[in-house]
């Protein structure tokens, strides 16, 4: 398996654990700051990543969502499913970058 495919597998496996409970959202600074749109919170980011891999999603909106994340790890602590949200987002940036280091 190539590095990029391995990275994809790692990220996807983790984000698919999301059950949409929303317990991550109340601590997210970026969700709160402007529109309150789920797009700019951890639950939205995690599920957009899953959508990107599984059925496709508008890349512009996806990037807006992913690159506004502070990677401050507040959400990671809240997730009852133990999803490493901040790390998945960081890894996904790596993926979007064409897998600098894993290609």
């Amino acid at each position: 398996m190539s590095g990029l495919a391995e990275l994809r597998r790692e990220i996807l496996r983790d984000v698919l654990k999301c059950s949409y409970c929303a317990m991550c959202e109340w601590v997210c600074p970026t969700l709160d700051v402007e529109s309150n749109n789920r797009l700019y919170g951890p639950r939205g980011r995690v599920n957009l990543i899953a959508s990107y891999f599984r059925e496709g999603v508008d890349i512009g909106i996806l990037k807006e969502s992913i690159y506004t994340c502070l990677v401050c790890m507040a959400c990671t602590r809240q997730c009852p499913a133990g999803i490493d949200i901040a790390e998945d987002i960081r890894k996904f940036r790596l993926f979007l970058d064409g897998g600098n280091g894993v290609g």
Binding site: S19, A22, N37, R38, L39, N47, S51, V57, D58, I61
Partner: peptide, 11 residues
């Protein structure tokens, strides 16, 4: 579509 998708799911 991305926003609509995120608001069309539940837990």
């Amino acid at each position: 579509p991305a926003t609509i998708k995120l608001y069309s799911k539940n837990a």
